[in-house]
């Protein structure tokens, strides 16, 4: 069964023709070359493939492309050069959040979704906000601190 699915990725109209059960992550990485979206587990457990769909954080490895018809998707490539994205990238780098880096684009997306909804989160709220994103390197403390830094540095950006 082939379908035509229309959606927006990083602000650009995209048309997918093919099996609607194709995973969104495969369309993003392979058809659109958006390799900042990482596959860590393939079952929605680790968050490395996190993208923002219609304002909400989702894991693109368990979403069939058929489910995004009419949606607006943002990946790391779509936010990294925005003011918010730059603030997050800078804060993650300065704050020591990045080690092997494989979870980090997804982590940045989670932080983006969190701060967009809650510009002044407590540490507990930050930990909850990234609880769907697994990191094996950092033990999370410096990721939490970096998101706090982004909230402080960004100020009105997140309001």
């Amino acid at each position: 069964m082939l379908s035509k699915i229309e959606f927006k990725v990083n602000g650009r109209n995209t048309v997918f023709s093919g099996n609607p059960l194709t995973r969104l992550i495969d369309v993003l990485r392979e058809d659109l070359g958006l390799t900042g979206v990482k596959e860590g587990c393939g079952e929605g457990e680790c968050g490395a493939c996190s993208v923002i769909k219609d304002g909400k954080l989702v894991t693109s490895c368990i979403i069939p492309v058929g489910a995004v018809n009419g949606s607006e998707i943002y990946t790391i490539e779509g936010i990294r050069d925005t003011e918010k994205g730059k603030c997050l990238v800078e804060s993650f780098a300065e704050g020591g959040a990045v080690q092997c880096g494989f979870c980090i684009p997804g982590m940045v997306m989670a932080a983006y979704a969190l701060l967009s909804e809650n510009p002044h989160p407590t540490d507990e709220e930050i930990r909850k906000g990234i609880s769907g994103n697994i990191c094996r390197c950092t033990g999370y403390d410096l990721i939490v601190a970096s998101i706090r830094l982004a909230a402080d540095k960004g100020g009105d950006l997140w309001a």
Binding site: R29, L34, T35, G36, V37, K38, E39, T75, I76, E77, R80, L88, V89, E90, F92, A93, E94, G96, A97, V98, C100, G101, F102, I104, P105, V108
Partner: peptide, 19 residues
Amino acid sequence: IVRTDAAAKARGEAKYACD
């Protein structure tokens, strides 16, 4: 100092084998 590999990784630009 700031880690030299941090920004490229955070921006999703670093290329891993799968990429």
